[in-house]
Simulated assay, not measured.
Amino acid sequence: MRPRVMTVYGTRPEAIKVAPLVAAIDASDVLEGTTVVTGQHREMLDQVNEVFGIVPDHDLDVMSHGQSLSHLFARVLERLDPVLESVRPDAVVVQGDTSTSTAAALAAFHRRIPVVHLEAGLRSGDLHSPFPEEANRRLTSRLAALHLAPTAGSRENLLTEGVPATDVVVTGNTVIDALLDVVARPVSFRDAEVSRAVDGDGDLLLVTAHRRESWGEGMRGIGRALATLATRRPDLTIVLPAHRNPQVRAAVLPAVEGLANVLVVEPLAYAEFAHLTHRSTVVLTDSGGVQEEAPSLGKPVLVMRENTERPEAVTAGTVRLVGTDPDRIVAEVDRLLSDREAYASMARATNPYGDGHAAVRGVAAIEHLLGVGTRRPDLGG
């Protein structure tokens, strides 16, 4: 009987990053796969599953309106445990740094099931930023039996914390596998204004903002920066897929209301967002995953945070931290749009996050963990 590997995920970023691994598990000659979604992001999660043809075997449907992080965590534990008892997997894969990933890792640990942590070893150095992600990823590392680290830097973080070297594999990031797959496919944009912007030939600034630690004045600063850029540069198109959190919208959107060259749209399906990133001139974001995706497409990334758990791209020169001060955001965007040499130095920097084969390395490591295969060499090894 082939070992069974259960993959548990709940948010859109998790779904994107586990999709290549789920496909590689299904393609394995020696493993059986089971997928469980928690529904931490409902609509956006379903969209990504549809793009990659994933039909979950179990849906825990944990979300309820206004619930706290603790309530969410408790519901994942409560609803996943009977599934673990019924399926009895030989390993459980979790991804990244969400409440879903840490709660699922703890549920598996309670049943003495080995935990595989995909995208392991990321660290910002500040337990409270990003919040609660930094704490989640550190907690998950303490529970994992196998750490699939995206970069050599992530591996070093784990070794520094005492994780045995034999338990860490540098795979690259599966987000690159997913991105390269999706941008090679054609896409149709549901929003006509976005479609026209993509088909145009002017500069396009893609903006995403949602970080909890920036709620309030930080988000208001982002809104003021976008308004200044739009006013100064009427030929610049700014596309802002607005996060659905009411606090984010209330802080950012009033500043850009009525500006014709700011397109405020609903969150885009993953394939649309990937193609919009490909078309953009500069990406302004506070997202973690976008810091990995955009450099793979040759796009300079300005990160509206004071620190990042993904320092490799900063070191490589394709990502720059700009915080949420509106004057600094405006100055950095202006610099890239006005200075061709500065733009080229970021756009041509080497992306450190992988070669599109992370999932293959990850599955080989899981097969080795379960005694049915051998590891592949680490990325860059």
Rank of each mutant, 00 (worst) to 15 (best):
S99W: 00
V87M: 10
E119C: 03
V94W: 03
V62P: 01
A107R: 01
A108D: 12
H110S: 14
P82G: 09
T98Q: 03
H71N: 14
I113Q: 07
R75D: 13
A108V: 10
L84D: 01
V94M: 09
S68L: 08
S101A: 15
V93R: 00
Q67M: 13
F109G: 07
V115I: 10
A91G: 02
Q67N: 07
V62W: 03
P114A: 08
T100D: 09
L118D: 04
P114E: 10
S68C: 08
T98R: 01
L80Y: 04
S68G: 12
F73A: 15
V62L: 14
R79L: 13
R123I: 06
D81L: 12
L69I: 08
G96Q: 08
V92H: 00
F73H: 13
H117Q: 10
H71S: 15
R75I: 01
V94C: 09
V76G: 11
S70H: 15
A105V: 11
S86Y: 06
L69C: 03
S70M: 13
L106C: 04
D90M: 03
T100N: 06
P89F: 12
L122W: 11
S64T: 15
T102R: 04
G125D: 04
V116A: 05
D90V: 01
H117Y: 07
V116D: 00
T102S: 11
V116G: 03
R79W: 10
V92N: 01
M63A: 14
S124H: 07
L80Q: 05
M63Y: 09
L122C: 08
S99N: 13
A120S: 14
G121I: 02
E119K: 03
L69W: 06
Q95Y: 10
H117N: 00
L84H: 08
R75N: 10
T98N: 02
V62Y: 12
V93A: 05
M63C: 06
G121M: 04
L118Y: 03
S99M: 12
L69D: 02
L72Y: 06
A74W: 09
T98V: 06
A103I: 00
L77F: 08
G96M: 06
A105Q: 01
S99I: 05
G121K: 06
V87S: 12
S64Y: 13
L80D: 11
D81I: 08
H110A: 15
V116N: 00
V93M: 01
D97Y: 05
V115W: 00
L84R: 00
V115F: 08
E119F: 00
A105W: 01
R75T: 04
A108G: 09
S64M: 15
A104S: 14
E78T: 10
L80M: 05
I113V: 14
L80K: 07
H117T: 06
A103N: 04
P89N: 06
D97F: 09
R88E: 14
H110W: 13
V92E: 02
A103H: 02
A74N: 12
A91W: 05
S64C: 11
V87G: 11
R79K: 15
R111C: 05
S124A: 14
S101Q: 02
V87I: 14
P82T: 07
Q67V: 10
D97T: 02
Q95P: 05
R112A: 14
A105T: 00
A105M: 02
H65F: 12
V93D: 03
F109V: 09
R88W: 03
A74I: 00
L84Q: 04
S68Y: 13
V83N: 11
T100Y: 04
A120F: 11
D81Q: 12
R123H: 11
L84K: 00
H110F: 13
